[in-house]
Simulated scan of single mutants.
Amino acid sequence: MTTLKSKLQADLNAAIKERDELRSSTLRLTLTAITKEEVAGTVKRELSDDEITKVITREAKKRREAAEAFAQGGRAEQAERERAEGEVLAVYLPKQLTDEELREIVVQAVEKARAAGAEGPRAMGQVMKIVNPEVAGQAEGGRVAALVKQVLAAG
């Protein structure tokens, strides 16, 4: 069974052979982030595929935020590069939920929380506890939280 890390490594080697600078530099940076995570703490360890997915998600989020910052700063070329790197990483992430799919999960979670007696803005934490395990890796936390707030406010 190949791990996600070994797939990244193999794809990096292929990208280097193909002289694909964008893919090779993006994968190299991502593998570095994974290695950093593995040696963080007191004991070096192998990350599980789930943990590696979290690292890739974090790297993809950095690319998205950098692309927005560059676009706002009028640096279209850098913004485009960051977006392209984000697309390289998206290949290794679970398929992201559509807005409709995410809304459906959030609405059900809000109903569950209300059934358990949670009301209004205070229900936010309880709803997030229900939603997060269901959407892990398939939707960014900020996007989930914004939608939960919106659904709770709509009552």
Results as ranks from 00 to 15, higher is better:
59 E>D: 14
96 Q>F: 06
154 A>C: 00
68 E>S: 03
14 A>F: 04
18 E>P: 01
36 K>W: 04
137 G>N: 11
139 A>V: 03
123 A>R: 02
122 R>P: 00
106 V>R: 03
70 F>V: 00
110 V>N: 13
12 L>C: 05
92 Y>E: 11
33 A>Y: 06
70 F>S: 00
13 N>M: 05
10 A>G: 04
127 V>M: 07
47 L>H: 12
129 K>M: 12
93 L>W: 10
99 D>H: 09
64 R>C: 02
65 E>W: 11
109 A>L: 04
30 T>P: 00
61 K>A: 14
35 T>R: 08
16 I>C: 02
59 E>Q: 15
11 D>H: 10
139 A>R: 09
117 G>F: 07
145 A>S: 12
108 Q>C: 03
55 V>Q: 04
131 V>S: 03
108 Q>A: 15
126 Q>M: 14
144 V>A: 11
116 A>P: 02
91 V>Y: 14
148 V>S: 06
127 V>S: 07
38 E>W: 12
154 A>M: 07
129 K>Y: 07
75 R>N: 14
108 Q>M: 09
58 R>W: 07
42 T>M: 08
58 R>M: 12
105 I>Q: 05
37 E>T: 14
98 T>V: 06
34 I>P: 01
58 R>T: 12
64 R>A: 13
118 A>R: 11
132 N>R: 14
9 Q>N: 08
74 G>F: 02
75 R>V: 05
131 V>K: 04
57 T>K: 04
151 V>H: 07
87 E>T: 03
139 A>Y: 12
126 Q>S: 13
127 V>N: 08
139 A>E: 10
116 A>Y: 06
70 F>Y: 02
7 K>M: 13
106 V>G: 01
10 A>K: 05
89 L>P: 01
112 K>W: 09
85 E>P: 00
93 L>P: 00
43 V>R: 07
53 T>H: 06
45 R>T: 12
38 E>D: 04
154 A>S: 10
76 A>C: 01
91 V>P: 01
140 E>W: 06
138 Q>A: 07
109 A>Q: 02
76 A>Y: 03
144 V>T: 12
101 E>P: 03
134 E>T: 02
63 R>V: 01
67 A>D: 01
38 E>T: 06
30 T>D: 04
26 T>S: 06
15 A>F: 04
153 A>C: 02
90 A>P: 01
129 K>P: 00
77 E>L: 08
108 Q>L: 08
83 R>T: 04
78 Q>I: 00
20 D>I: 06
95 K>W: 08
126 Q>T: 09
22 L>T: 09
149 K>Y: 05
34 I>S: 02
118 A>I: 03
155 G>D: 12
24 S>P: 01
17 K>D: 14
121 P>A: 15
137 G>V: 13
71 A>F: 09
30 T>K: 09
121 P>L: 15
88 V>K: 05
14 A>H: 03
37 E>P: 01
72 Q>R: 14
98 T>F: 12
27 L>H: 05
71 A>M: 11
18 E>Y: 03
45 R>S: 09
148 V>N: 08
129 K>T: 12
142 G>R: 05
115 A>K: 15
60 A>G: 09
45 R>D: 12
